[in-house]
Design a protein around this nucleic acid. Structure first.
Length: 591
RNA sequence: GGCCCCAUCGUCUAGUCCGGUCCAGGACGCCAGGUUCUCAUCCUGGAAACAGGGGUUCGAAUCCCCUUGGGGUCACCA
């Protein structure tokens, strides 16, 4: 018989998008399993959806989370099936331990709860939420630590017959676990043994009044039944783990009678914002509110903002007053005020033009490092998924919380973009545009043909964009000059005055001369090098200098003083557009 | 507040397990130069950390203790 598989799992609750911290947890679990596969072992990465909160869970969220994972390249062996764009399917239940949605496993949890009750390790409890809340308040008022106090009629190991009968008759109740009275030890591969003194654990709820298991209970049952051997998750779960260990010691499998095993635990450090606060989607609302408030000090009103955003005044006013954090309002305000909301969820990064391989690389560095140095003794910190799988180990997970440094992420993303082949960049940018900026995509199609990445001019544009864009979205901003119609761009008056009209219109004169020389170039000769050579020639012959010529032409064809190199700028536009723009400038900017 | 976890440049970290090669290395950011037709890119250089105090030791960033600081968690949410 082959060795049983080594199984890691990521178990998100489908109540929103995939958080960047969740992505890191998933990544480490994936890397561990993938590393075992490299060694020829049966390592498996599993996904389970923890949807026991009926009110907050949704199928759309579950699907979104799976798609974001797949986009990052974090693919699972076991779990819900997802069909990729390529037609390939990830997930599935080849081990036969599903279903992977906890809401579909309620019967199993109930069977285990009943077994626990019959063996005197759990009991129905009838206190109402209100009662409990009152007790909690009283404890806080008396400055006592609140713990649920075990009713006096219970004896560990004895079936609570009276309570059971009340419960069976339909009396509303929860089921509580009868916590052990001895020390609980959580063996953790990152932190070492964590010991909890006797009496620290109270009798916590394992089944809610609605019949659904609590998180703690479902996790313990599922991890055992699904063969999970390694639980790697964020440190925020550490304090819960003693409960899990305590339950594992009390539970036995209904099918084989074997006691539950305690998996290997590895709790990883948390990820925070640069200011030390938790990274939360609320940050987006905060940022939008701040921008909106700045705008109101400059004269905007809730009504004017609402109008500009196409929203009702009520929600906007409420948002400004921090009565709610509606994301749609935050995003509309951000769009209008041209501020970028902080990226918190994978989807945010994706939409803003970060590369998946950069994100996985960067988050892998938060709480883990390979410890390897390159030939010059520098830390190896740029790597791909393959490297991660090969070098990941639990031993090298750190213990200290990390802050999410957006500047460094941006730098990594910028480097990755710079390092792309021209053609690769063009096609990735194009597909990003199609997905996230459809309007710009159709403009690109108009300007560069039906298959833009195949257009030499678009590839040329891409080459010019790469060093100027840290994200695919920034590339769009840098490309605007080429996407606007030949007669549709505005002239920056200051730039016109300085570079065209100044010194008695010398700039305009240079534009005229450039236009003449450019007109002599054949279509096939309209390359960055040829165009640049012409500009340089004129710069020399006229004695004006390259700066004067370039800036004059630049302002003439783009309206502003900033664009890629002058040769590239004109070549990307092409001969016809360049001449049309030059002519337009000559008409529009005469003194 | 109880319980638990953590502690190297502003940030991510190497070095800590197996004290000496560390007056602590790298990356991002920052500062100063340089290249350049603008903006970027690129190149060179620089400032920048072992939280504090006690031990142990010939010797401590590395081991022990205390203090301080940070964080997590205390739900019929996961």
């Amino acid at each position: 018989m082959p060795d049983p598989p080594i199984v890691t799992r990521f178990a998100p609750s489908p109540t929103g998008h995939l958080h960047i911290g969740g992505a890191r947890s998933a990544l480490f679990c994936w890397a561990f399993a993938a590393g075992l596969k490299n060694l020829g072992l049966d390592g498996r990465f599993m996904i389970r959806i923890e949807d026991t909160d009926q009110a907050r869970s949704s199928d759309e969220s579950a699907r979104g989370i799976l798609e974001d994972l797949a986009w990052l390249g974090i693919e699972w062996d076991d779990g819900p099936e997802l069909r990729l764009g390529s037609g390939r399917t990830v997930g599935g239940d080849s081990r036969g331990v599903g279903p992977y949605f906890q809401a579909r496993r309620v019967a199993t949890y109930n069977a285990y709860a009943e077994d626990l009750i019959r063996r005197g390790r759990a009991y129905p409890a009838f206190e109402t939420s209100e009662e409990l809340e009152a007790r909690r308040k009283a404890a806080v008022a008396a400055k006592r630590t609140y713990r649920f106090e075990r009713p006096g009629d219970l004896v560990a190991g004895e079936f609570p017959r009276g309570r059971w009968e009340r419960a069976v008759k339909g009396e509303r109740h929860v089921v509580r676990f009868l916590s052990p009275r001895e020390e609980v030890v959580v063996p953790d591969r990152v932190l070492g043994d964590v010991r909890i003194a006797p009496g620290e654990l109270d009798d916590f709820v394992i089944r809610k009044a609605d019949g659904f298991p609590t998180y703690h209970f479902a996790v313990v049952i599922d991890d055992e039944l699904m063969g999970v051997t390694h639980v790697m998750r964020a440190q925020e779960h550490l304090a819960n783990t003693p409960r899990h260990v305590a339950m594992q010691k009390a539970l036995a499998r209904l099918d084989t009678g074997a006691p539950f095993r305690t998996p290997e635990y590895a709790h990883m450090p948390l990820i925070f914002n640069m200011d030390g606060t938790k990274m939360s989607k609320r940050d987006k609302a905060k940022a939008a509110r701040k921008a909106a408030k700045d705008a109101t000090t400059k004269g905007a009103t809730p009504a004017s903002l609402a109008g500009a955003c196409g929203l009702e005044e009520g929600p906007v006013a409420g948002f400004l007053a921090a009565e709610h954090d509606r994301l749609d309002v935050a995003e509309a305000l951000a769009r209008h005020l041209k501020v970028t909301l902080p990226e918190i969820e994978v989807w945010d990064f994706r939409r803003n033009g970060y590369l998946p391989e950069v994100i996985t690389n960067f988050i892998a560095l938060l709480g883990w490092s390979s410890g390897l140095k390159d030939g010059q003794g520098k830390d190896v910190e740029k790597f791909d998924m393959r490297f991660l799988a090969e070098h990941f180990s639990i031993e090298r997970i750190g213990r200290t919380n990390a802050r999410f440094d957006r500047a460094k992420l941006l730098a990594f993303n910028a480097d990755a973009i710079k390092g792309m082949e021209d053609g690769a960049f063009a096609s990735r940018w194009w597909s990003w545009l199609g997905e996230h900026e459809p309007e710009a995509a159709s403009t690109v199609r108009r300007a560069f043909g039906d298959d833009p990445p195949a257009s030499p001019r678009l590839v040329m544009l891409g080459r010019a964009l790469k060093p100027r864009a840290r994200t695919l979205r920034e590339a769009l901003a840098a490309a605007r000059f080429a996407l606007v119609g030949d007669d549709a761009y505005d002239f920056d008056q200051a730039a016109v005055a300085k570079h065209l009209q100044g010194e008695g219109g010398r700039g305009l004169d240079l534009v005229r001369q450039v236009r003449e020389r450019l007109a002599g170039l054949g279509d096939g000769e309209f390359t960055p090098d040829q165009v640049h050579a012409i500009a340089e020639q004129l710069a020399q012959q006229s004695g004006a200098g390259m700066g004067a010529v370039s800036q004059a032409v630049r302002v003439a064809v783009t309206g502003a003083g900033v664009s890629p190199g002058i040769g590239e700028t004109l070549a990307v536009l092409g001969k016809a557009s360049t001449l049309a723009r030059l002519d337009r400038c000559l008409r529009a900017c005469v003194v």
